[in-house]
Simulated assay, not measured.
Amino acid sequence: MQILITGGTGFIGQGLVKQWLAKGRSLTVLTRNVSQWQQKLPQVRWFSHWDELDRNENWDAIINLAGEPILDARWTEQRKASLLASRVGVTQHLCQYVTSLAYMPKRLISGSAIGYYGFHPPEVELTEDSQPGQDFAAQLCVSWEQAADEIRQLGIATCCVRTGVVLGHGGALQKMLPPFKLGLGGPIGTGKQIFSWIHYEDMLSCIDWLLQNPNVCGVINATAPEPVTNAEFSTRLGKVLHRPAFCRVPAKALELMLGREASAMLLQGQRVIPKRLLDEGFIFKYSDIASALTNLLEQD
């Protein structure tokens, strides 16, 4: 199987690359640092510019996961432009490339995020049919999905994956652990906001499952079936680490650090349900937060 990947050096992408190499799949990955990654994984074909690829390439699937980390810096106008370019811009360039191909790829799996839905009270359940929000993160996802839809209109079986917070060795959980290990962790703000998450293994399995089930098209929520409040997550994380988790992070502190817009992603939330995955028969290995954190931190 010939697979083209953008975002293959990111948190999720690296896991997919290693998993698919082990299965004998042929991978071509977009990166800005070809020499660095060529040394790490010489089995992969790396490229940095679209014109390095031939129009006669015959791709079985394209996995589009490119995107800079959303909360690594304050959302200045320059940062917002970078976030848009790394998601919408890359997807638009991908569309231009696909349009030039002599053979249409059979499958596109393109990234998105549950930020699409905006922020909602804890009792509101959101499925793939729910409407988008109006904040910057929501509109970023809307534009990202619209760019992927341009590729779908070329006749390619397309799926947009709205991903929750991915818990694994790295990513968001790695940033949360230090204060919790010191006994200084705790809820963020009120702690009542909903935390929609997914275990790293389930995230990789979801994308691989979608690759093997090209009849599943449209939007997919990649979140565990049991979202929790931020306070519940903090309590469970403290228990697994055998540490107290009472040091609440004030909302004002986050706003000072990240700015009001970006901090809202941590201070507010959305209860996202993976309705389509469940309806289509996908089986989660880690459905509840207790089993997910126990698994991850026992391996730590």
Rank of each mutant, 00 (worst) to 15 (best):
I156Q: 05
S205V: 01
Y103K: 09
M176C: 12
L204W: 08
D202E: 10
A138K: 09
L140H: 02
L94W: 01
G186M: 12
A222C: 14
F180Y: 12
L211V: 01
T163E: 04
T223L: 05
L167V: 07
L182E: 11
G191Q: 04
Q146L: 12
A102M: 09
N213A: 08
G118W: 02
S100K: 06
D202G: 06
I156V: 15
Y103Q: 13
D129H: 12
C95R: 10
L94C: 07
D149N: 15
K192D: 03
Q92G: 00
Y116W: 03
G218P: 02
M176F: 14
P121L: 07
G168Q: 03
I188V: 15
L210G: 00
V142G: 10
Q174V: 08
G191E: 04
V219Q: 07
M203Y: 02
D149Q: 15
I109E: 02
I109H: 01
Q131I: 11
I188L: 15
T99L: 12
I114L: 00
G170C: 04
L94K: 03
S112L: 07
W197T: 05
C141I: 11
V124L: 03
Y117F: 06
A157E: 13
I198D: 01
K181F: 13
T190S: 15
S143W: 05
F136S: 09
V98N: 01
G115F: 00
I156M: 07
S143Y: 07
I207W: 01
V124E: 05
N221K: 03
L126V: 06
A224R: 07
G189N: 09
E123Y: 11
A148D: 10
S130T: 04
A148G: 10
W209S: 02
L184F: 14
Q146K: 15
V124Y: 01
I188T: 14
A222K: 07
P187I: 04
L154H: 10
R152C: 11
A113C: 03
N221L: 02
G164A: 05
V165W: 07
G185K: 11
G186K: 10
A172Y: 09
E123F: 08
A157V: 06
S112Q: 07
I194P: 04
Q174Y: 08
P225V: 11
Q193P: 09
C160Y: 06
Q212D: 08
R162T: 05
K175T: 11
I156W: 04
Q146R: 13
Q131H: 12
V165R: 06
P227C: 12
H199F: 06
S143I: 03
L108G: 00
Y117P: 03
D129Q: 14
L154E: 10
P214D: 06
Q174T: 13
I114C: 00
M176Y: 14
W144S: 04
L126G: 00
D149C: 13
S196C: 02
F136M: 09
Q139H: 09
P187H: 07
F195Y: 14
M203C: 10
